[in-house]
Nucleic acid binder design. Structure first.
Lengths: 134, 134, 134, 134
DNA sequence: TTTT
DNA sequence: TTTT
């Protein structure tokens, strides 16, 4: 059945990279996707969408993206549940990214940026992977 | 920023139609979207995705869809939080449907279906609405 | 870069299945996707979108879909050009389907449909393939 | 019926802005969307996708985007035909953009860019419009 | 809390 | 007719 999601937004924090007991890389990050409309208070709201990536893309995401990076995600919605430490079932809805596009280069913190280096002249980097472990 | 979701799945229960204090119709339903792959136990899993619709579409959804109906949804992911009755913050991720396509006619329960009536010859019905209240 | 298309529509004719010189299956079909709005004459228009599928999905499409079938397509837009028989360059924009969902069972022509067989009780069939030859 | 397209790519030329006899703005542009895979010659191919936008977005596109700009498009596929000057029917497949996201600031040609202005710190601009004339 |  |  059809289940397709496409997002462009900014990472709210650095991605978290972990490894499963079998050594498979998994990264989690949250995308802040600004809404085009404003709320009753006239503010521009955002949706904060949790994303997961596996394997090689997970490692690429951890290497190339950080808090504030602009990224595009093509994936699907996944739901799952787990029991929290109070023994209560928690339901999770998140996006499994099948490909991630790095839409800009961030200046490194405290780094000395050469006068002629402009992010808008950098190539967006595509990181995709087809043999996911699920 | 880009935030787009397209789903095709079956309703897990009848849609719930309510009205805001200002009289705006809202309907909630959950789509079961079967995955194409199978899990470790060889079972075919599904994602259970909560959807919200507003206004005229909400009423159409309540009228035309029921538990088990096959439906297509075009919308976006929305996140929000609220405090539950224990004073704890609960985070919700759901799909705001901007248009819903009713993909089949369900036989009415206990009804007598005429020998020549086939769901596959019915026209899918599109219900969309552009002036959402947000 | 992001390139994602999702369609639900009906085949305008039976799919055409061919094989490349290397024996790779390719199928072509056109989806009529009705618009939700009506034109100035008050008619409901449709878009006629050419689709290509490769390999196993191509054969599944040829086996399961026919003129009039309702199908969902998840894929991407592809552009290419070729020289026609008058030596003129022709530009083609089409959708490469990465997965196709068969959304209903068509009654076989002249077949005897049992009184209790309803398309709406059939399972949508997903046909997808990840190792495309391009 | 469902018809949804999401693209991220670069403009191959400056957008062309025109007005209908009734004064409605229309802009045309082509997005080069690089493929993630390479062709047999090891080159990285691209798809060149023609896009149309109407009304206010058309004017925004003409103002903010130019050849080489990185842009995101959310829209749908449209097909139409017209008779060319040889009296031959030409079929067109293009994307009608319902919203366009300007994903970077281009340095103005010959302009003097201040040492601390980085495109990656600029806000992507969303231009969308809901009351299209069709 | 889940559909066919 | 093609962008970085």
């Amino acid at each position: 059945m059809l289940n397709r999601v496409v997002l462009v937004g900014r990472l709210t924090r650095d991605p978290e990279l972990r490894y499963t007991p079998n050594g498979v890389a998994v990264a989690n990050f949250t995308l802040a996707v600004n809404r085009t409309f404003t709320n009753q208070q006239g503010e521009r709201d955002a949706d904060f969408i949790n994303c997961v990536v596996w394997q090689k893309i997970a490692e690429n995401v951890a290497n190339y993206l950080k808090k504030g990076s602009l990224a595009g995600v093509d994936g699907r919605i996944q739901t799952r549940s787990y029991d929290n430490n109070e023994g209560r079932k928690v339901f999770v809805t998140e996006v499994v990214a099948e490909s991630v596009q790095f839409l800009e280069t961030r200046r490194s913190e405290g780094g000395q940026a050469p006068a002629d280096s402009f992010a808008n002249e950098s190539q967006p980097i595509d990181i995709s992977d087809d043999d996911l472990p699920f």
